[in-house]
């Protein structure tokens, strides 16, 4: 029981921090432009595929730097030539544009790399168990993932709160016109933030690709979960995004690791149903079974009872 708990916590931490890398960029972009970027997870997928192709020639480490940069540049171009054009037509059009972009990127990935799963592996140098606990190994690569995520979080926090650029960005979120009048190029700031946000998603893809497998559906798998996190945490709140990411990561990890279910609850309550009861499916549910839907359940509940999210400000 105890070792299950420890490993579930560690795995939940890995997933949660990975989700945060995506959610942080998404929430930053949202607070700047008011656009929920549906294609955010598609940039994550592009990161994994770029890194796979680059690593074929140079190995993992140069890909770790190059792929996120490429993704970021691509994101900036999308903002400059796509999103800025659609901006005139309003928020719904922007949302639908990113939705179409997600669709398009998935098709493009299938065009260039095919439908099959790519054999994108973690570097050999990290291919050893970091420690063994109760006979179970904890791979060094997962520790590396945790390390990168935390480093990114600290760097992001430092840049946003302690540097001049960060202050300008924060000001541009709330008072874009004033910042513009002070002589800063606000559209350029928007483009840069979009580029950095998508670049972070790309980085998440680079480090997650080997663990979560690199296939054309990987954006779909994570995309809506990241949305859920950003909404649960409160739109535009970085701290909220961190808490919600860890919450979702741990929740899913515990649910998968546990072997509890409705039968246990019914036993405990002393109730039993016959096998051909019409709701038999419900009476036999187990936690690992419903793990994938827990985030959505949480989302709907949060939106009903606290529409602004856990850390969100009052909705305008």
């Amino acid at each position: 029981m105890f070792e299950v708990l420890i490993f579930a916590t560690l795995n939940g931490l890995v997933t949660g921090l990975l989700l945060f890398m995506l959610a942080s960029g998404l929430t930053l972009i949202f607070s700047m432009m008011g656009v929920l970027n549906f294609a955010h997870a598609s940039f994550y997928m592009l990161g994994a595929y770029f890194a796979y192709s680059i690593s074929l020639y140079t190995g993992f480490w140069p890909a770790l730097i190059l792929a996120p940069v490429l993704v970021g540049v691509l994101g900036a171009l999308v903002e400059r030539y796509g999103l800025r054009r659609v901006h005139k037509s309003g928020h719904v059009a922007e949302l639908i544009f990113t939705f179409g972009l997600a669709f398009l990127i998935e098709e493009a990935v299938q065009f260039f790399w095919g439908r099959a799963t790519k054999d994108y592996r973690s570097p050999d140098i990290l291919d050893f168990p970091l420690f063994t606990l109760f006979g179970q190994n904890f791979p060094a690569y997962k520790a590396f993932m945790i390390f990168i995520s935390i480093a990114i979080f600290i760097a992001l926090y430092f840049v946003l709160t302690r540097t001049r650029i960060g202050i300008i960005i924060q000001a541009a979120i709330t008072h874009p016109h004033t910042v513009g009048n002070l002589g800063h190029n606000v559209p350029l700031i928007f483009m840069a933030v979009f580029g950095v946000g998508t670049g972070l998603a790309g980085l998440a893809g680079v480090i997650a690709g080997p663990v979560l497998t690199t296939f054309p559906g990987m954006a779909m798998v994570l995309g809506s979960i990241v949305f859920v996190i950003v909404v649960i945490g409160g739109l535009g709140s970085l701290a909220g995004a961190l808490v919600a990411s860890l919450l979702i990561g741990l929740l899913q990890s515990y649910a998968i690791a546990s072997d509890l279910g409705m039968p246990d609850l019914l036993n405990w309550l002393g109730v039993s149903f016959e096998r051909d009861h019409p709701l038999n499916d419900i009476w036999r549910l187990t936690l690992p079974q419903i793990a994938p839907i827990l985030p959505y359940l949480l989302l709907v509940l949060v939106l009903i009872f606290r529409p602004s999210g856990l850390f969100g400000k009052r909705e305008s």
Partner: peptide, 13 residues
């Protein structure tokens, strides 16, 4: 599907 995606994005733009 690829053409459909391109057409959709171009329509929105």
């Amino acid at each position: 599907m690829l053409y459909l995606g391109i057409m959709f994005v171009l329509t929105v733009m």
